[in-house]
């Protein structure tokens, strides 16, 4: 069970998060907060003509939330805003429903083990909630509650 949750890819991304930096020329950004564990997450987007050129994040969090943010930034690069919204919805379903696992989530499938750990779902969704706030222009802090 430990390995279902702490998949190799998750451990890798939590130790060496990708795109883990401030994005100076971001034109969308948002900050998220998980009041349960005190974790914070900032997401920065550079979007041009509806396409996400660059996306980065910052924040201190557990392995699940850090890896989720890191893999999210990789998955979003080059996507349109519409595609990003679709991905967000699918990722949410992956974690929170007991429907059969979606197929087309690529590397993000490593989070499928999280649905067995209800106490950790919010860790995995923090970056994504923050992404949604950034996409929808609600620039203020959001909470993953």
């Amino acid at each position: 069970m430990i390995n279902d949750l702490y998949h190799e890819t998750i451990l890798d991304h939590s130790k060496r998060p990708r795109n883990f930096q401030l994005l100076e020329d971001a034109n969308r950004r948002a900050e998220g907060y998980n009041p349960l564990c005190g974790d914070k997450c900032k997401v920065f987007l550079k979007e041009h003509d509806g396409v996400i050129d660059k996306v980065t994040f910052q924040g201190a969090g557990c392995a699940i939330s850090t890896a989720s943010a890191s893999l999210m930034t990789e998955a979003l690069k080059g996507k349109t805003i519409g595609e990003a919204e679709t991905l967000l919805a699918k990722f949410h379903d992956l974690l929170t429903t007991d429907q059969p696992l979606p197929k087309d989530l690529g590397k993000l499938m490593v989070f499928s083990g999280v649905r067995e750990f209800p106490a950790r779902v919010k860790c995995a969704t923090l970056a994504w909630h923050t992404l949604r706030a950034a996409l929808r222009g609600a620039g203020e802090a959001v909470s993953s509650e």
């Binding site: 430990i2 130790k15 564990c37 974790d39 557990c62 392995a63 699940i64």
Partner: peptide, 29 residues
């Protein structure tokens, strides 16, 4: 190198119930 939340989950899988978080004492943290 380990976030308390992750430690808590792994301990739980070992049958060990502990609390992780700020323990309602954020100023102490």
């Amino acid at each position: 190198g380990v976030h308390p939340h992750d430690a808590g989950t792994i301990l739980d899988l070992e049958g060990i119930a502990v609390r992780t978080g700020h323990h309602c004492a954020q100023p102490v943290m």
